[in-house]
C-alpha cells in the first residue's frame, strides 16, 4: 500500500466509524516508518473533515459523527504518543464545553463538541446542567483556550452572564475565549454580555472558533 493509499484508507476508516480498522492502519503506518503527524493530518483529519461536511449537508447524522469521533480517538491513541516522542505533536487548541446550569438539553452542545473535535480541537465535554464554577475549574485545570456554554432555555441564559462576570471577578477573563450559543441565544445578546463568539448553528460555531483563534494568535 502506498503512503497516499494508507492516508486514504485511514480517512475512510474514520469516516466509517471503524475504530478497529483505524487502529490497525495507524499501527501499519508506524511500522512503515510514516511520520505520525502526517498520518494524523493527511489521514485522520481528512476523514473527520469529510464527516463534518457531510453532516452539514445532512448526508449523515449525529450517530455517524459520534462513531467517527470514537474511531479518530482510538487511532490518535496510537499515533499521538509516537508523534510526541519525535517532538512532532501538534499543539491542539483546548475547548471546555457544557450545557449550562439548569438545563439538560444537550444535543446541540453535543453536535458542536463533535464538529469541534472533527476540526482538530481537543474537547472536554462536561455534560449538562453544569455549574459555571465547574466550567472554570476545568478550563484552569487543562489550560483551555475556549470556554463554551450552551442552553436551550432563556432562563439559563443569565448563567452565561454569570460565567463572564465570575471570570472577570477572578481576574482571568482575558485567558479565555468565551463562546455561547443555543436556541434562544442571539448574536446581539451574546455581544451584550461580552462573549467573544456566537454561532447560529454548529457549523458557524466552529468557523467562529477558528477565526477567534487566528485573531488571538495574531495579537
Amino acid at each position: 500500500m502506498s503512503e497516499a493509499q494508507l492516508y486514504e484508507e485511514l480517512a475512510n476508516a474514520v469516516y466509517a466509524g471503524d475504530d478497529a480498522k483505524a487502529v490497525e492502519l495507524s499501527r501499519k503506518s508506524l511500522d512503515a516508518g510514516i511520520d505520525p503527524l502526517k498520518a494524523i493530518n493527511e489521514g485522520l483529519m481528512k476523514g473527520m473533515s469529510r464527516v463534518g461536511d457531510d453532516f452539514s449537508q445532512l448526508k449523515i447524522y449525529l450517530p455517524e459523527v459520534m462513531l467517527a469521533a470514537e474511531a479518530m480517538k482510538a487511532a490518535l491513541a496510537v499515533l499521538e504518543p509516537e508523534a510526541l516522542k519525535r517532538g512532532r505533536a501538534s499543539v491542539k487548541s483546548k475547548v471546555v464545553i457544557a450545557t449550562i446550569t439548569g438545563d439538560i438539553h444537550d444535543i446541540g452542545k453535543n453536535i458542536v463538541a463533535m464538529l469541534m473535535r472533527a476540526n482538530g480541537f481537543e474537547v472536554y465535554d462536561l455534560g449538562r446542567d453544569v455549574p459555571i464554577d465547574e466550567l472554570i475549574k476545568k478550563a484552569e485545570e487543562v489550560k483551555a483556550d475556549f470556554i463554551c456554554a450552551s442552553t436551550l432555555l432563556s432562563t439559563s441564559m443569565p448563567y452565561m452572564e454569570d460565567l463572564i462576570a465570575l471570570l472577570k471577578e477572578r481576574g482571568i477573563r482575558e485567558k479565555y475565549i468565551v463562546m455561547v450559543g443555543g436556541g434562544p441565544v442571539t448574536r446581539e445578546w451574546a455581544a451584550s454580555i461580552g462573549a467573544d463568539g456566537y454561532g447560529d448553528d454548529a457549523d458557524e460555531a466552529v468557523k467562529v472558533a477558528k477565526d477567534l483563534l487566528l485573531r488571538r494568535g495574531a495579537q
Binding site: 453532516f55 445532512l58 447524522y61 449525529l62 450517530p63 444535543i107 453536535i111
Partner: peptide
Amino acid sequence: PIIGGYAGG
C-alpha cells in the same frame, strides 16, 4: 425529535 440527531434523517 431532531432531524440529523440520534434518530437519523
